[in-house]
Design a protein around this nucleic acid. Structure first.
Length: 611
DNA sequence: GCGATCAGAT
DNA sequence: CACATCTGATCGC
């Protein structure tokens, strides 16, 4: 039980203090400070929740670790050199390959501008990672979603695994990782919201055996099942309709729910007003279409959830009638009668979890959220397939799984897994020793394939150059692969697409393979012949207005800096958007934003016709 | 001064 | 409790 006393602070900029090391802030900190300040000495807390599996003191964690008190959702996968959302090198000396599932801050604890290992993630996550945390581009390895990529696990690339990224439908850029290697088949969902289209992913469609499913069990509670996002969106729309002539504040976190905001923009024909910082991020995401930082240009505002507090509600309502909506399934204290909670969740509901697990029939499940029980509800869907035999080779001491089906599976899961005939990659090698792994980057210097002067443009379509990297395409063990060397042949990464004869690149109208340094690793991502399934949430329902269409002629092939990617929407673009989406035009609404949309449109057309 | 880490807060 | 995130202290470089 936690009891905290609050003293309400003064609203306004009086509390401003300078702080430089929070580059990911997307909201006005002054507003936050003004809301609720813990009264010194009044807070008591019983935590008791410092779960740690494995050895948290040494250099290795178990399945999941929570170093210190900072919320952290990362994992070292036992029996593998894989770290997902885990960024403490000191505590992860065995980890060789680091994956980032999405850009929520509890999954990036430890990531900063000083990070110096390759990070594999989706292209969108890579862009935000660079933009927000200033991780150097050279360490960011975006992998195209929906494709299978071959990744070297040792110094010479003899031991490999494939990783396939699947849209996790959680927030922009979020992915699940399907790892297939000498250890077996592991699906790490990260945070995800299930949707049936996931099962149509080529890599999941055939219901291959999943040895271990790391499952986001956040909402695995039959008593707290949630509405679909579509239903929650409807609820929000009804709330808004029930409050005509009100401005609306939607409380959101730094990333996520952009599609909800866009949906509201189209439904109510208004721009979504966000902070300049958030707009900047929208540009990084390529989602500028309906967002503006121009105060007064629209009557629906996307604000940080922490800004919605009693003081702010009072202040807003003094200016004009205002309601706030918190689209979250998280229990929060309602600070004001005009604040409405809608259970809009970015995590799978209970019934969705059941459906997902029922389809996958994994051999074992590791719940990502330890405090939640989930096995009692899911174990009936576990596979009884026991083809995999325990591999006694690489012991993982001190690691425990909870909620596995039975002790036998528990034993198997804690040990390295191996698969039989369906093994997708050669598995003759075991992983290199952890001691070597500590300095593994130094061992990547031997491989020399397709070396090319970095000032040349690629001529051979099978060899190309990108941001100082040299890429080469070939065949390896019957799988078409690409090998890339970056900055002095330090690392290699393979991209594989076994089922494609002639990979077609995206953006074929712009022939240069050198697009955004992070956005389109054309040489690595063998195109989207398998088009990724369109997920309802982050499928771009709006016409693509942000990238190439607005690039000046010839700009598409430029290797510009990330700061200028995607290009900033200009005012004429905004006019185009207003016309295309029937948004109230920018700059004409400041004095009319409280009026009905019809009046606004009428006014707009009158203006366009002239006197 | 800055980054890493940790305790503690909403 | 909790769809995540921030503040502040301390320490070492």
């Amino acid at each position: 039980m936690r009891s905290t006393a609050y003293v309400l602070g003064e609203y306004g900029p009086a509390h401003h203090t300078k702080r430089t090391h929070a580059p990911n802030r997307l909201y006005d900190r002054d507003a936050r400070r003004a809301c609720a300040v813990p009264l010194a000495g009044a807070a008591t807390q019983v935590t008791g929740g410092n779960w740690t599996l494995g050895n948290n003191q040494g250099d290795r964690c178990g399945v999941l670790c929570q170093p210190g008190a900072q919320a952290m959702n990362g994992a070292l996968i036992p029996g593998t050199p894989i770290a997902v959302d885990f960024w403490s090198i000191r505590k992860a000396s065995h980890a060789r390959v680091f994956f980032l599932s999405h850009m929520h801050s509890d999954h990036t604890v430890g990531l900063s501008s000083t990070w110096h290992r390759p990070v594999y993630c989706s292209p969108i996550t890579g862009r935000i990672l660079h933009h927000r945390l200033k991780v150097a581009e050279r360490w960011i390895w975006p992998l195209e979603v929906g494709q299978s990529h071959l990744v070297a696990l040792d110094e010479v690339g003899k031991s490999t695994m494939t990783v396939t990224l699947i849209d996790a439908n959680h927030c922009p850029g979020s992915v699940m990782f399907l790892f297939e290697g000498p250890f077996g088949v592991i699906l790490y969902t990260g945070d995800f919201r299930y949707t049936p289209t996931m099962l149509q992913e080529p890599v999941l469609r055939n219901q291959k055996r999943i040895d271990v499913l790391y499952l986001d069990n956040t909402n695995c509670d039959p008593l707290g099942d949630l509405p679909s996002r579509q239903q929650a969106t409807q609820q929000i729309k009804e709330l808004i309709r029930a409050h005509p002539n009100h401005q609306v504040k939607i409380g959101v976190y730094s990333l996520g729910k952009e599609s909800l905001l866009a949906d509201l923009a189209l439904e109510f024909h208004t721009w979504i007003v966000v902070s300049p910082k958030r707009l900047e991020q929208m540009k990084v995401l390529g989602l500028v279409d309906v967002f503006t930082a121009e105060e007064g240009a629209g009557w629906i505002h996307g604000v940080d959830i922490s800004e919605i507090c009693w003081e702010a509600m009072i202040s807003w309502n003094q200016q004009r009638p205002t309601i706030a909506i918190l689209p979250t399934s998280r229990p929060v204290k309602i600070p004001h009668p005009s604040v409405h909670l809608v259970p809009y969740s970015d995590h799978s509901s209970f019934s969705e979890l059941l459906e997902f697990v029922q389809w996958l029939k994994p051999c074992s499940i590791v719940p990502i959220v330890k405090r939640n029980m989930c096995l009692p509800y899911l174990e009936k869907y576990l596979s009884s397939d026991h083809k995999a035999s325990p591999e006694p080779g690489i012991p993982e001491s001190g690691q425990k799984f909870t909620q596995l089906r039975e002790s036998r599976e528990q034993q198997r899961a804690t040990e390295p897994l191996r698969t039989a005939a369906q093994q997708p990659v050669p598995r003759k090698d075991s992983f290199a020793s952890p001691e070597k792994g500590t300095n593994w980057l130094e061992h990547f210097g031997d491989v020399t394939i397709g070396q090319q002067n970095s000032s040349e443009q690629p001529r051979d379509p099978d060899t190309c150059l990108q941001g100082g990297s040299v890429c080469c395409r070939g065949e390896r063990e019957g799988i078409k692969v690409e090998l890339c060397q970056l900055h002095g042949a330090q690392r290699q990464l393979f991209s594989a697409q076994p089922n494609t004869q002639t990979p077609a690149r995206r953006h074929t109208s712009h022939a240069s393979p050198c697009q955004s340094p992070l956005g389109d690793w054309a040489p690595l991502t063998l195109a989207s012949v398998q088009k990724k399934a369109a997920l309802p949430s982050y499928k771009k329902s709006l016409t693509c207005l942000q990238t190439e269409e607005f690039l000046p002629p010839g700009a598409a092939g430029d290797c510009g800096s990330l700061a200028s990617w995607p290009p900033v929407a200009s005012s004429h673009v905004a006019r185009g958007l207003a016309e295309e989406y029937l948004l109230a035009p920018l700059n004409t609404l400041k004095q009319y934003s409280a009026e009905s949309f019809d009046q606004q449109i009428e006014y707009y057309f009158r203006r366009g016709e002239g006197p």
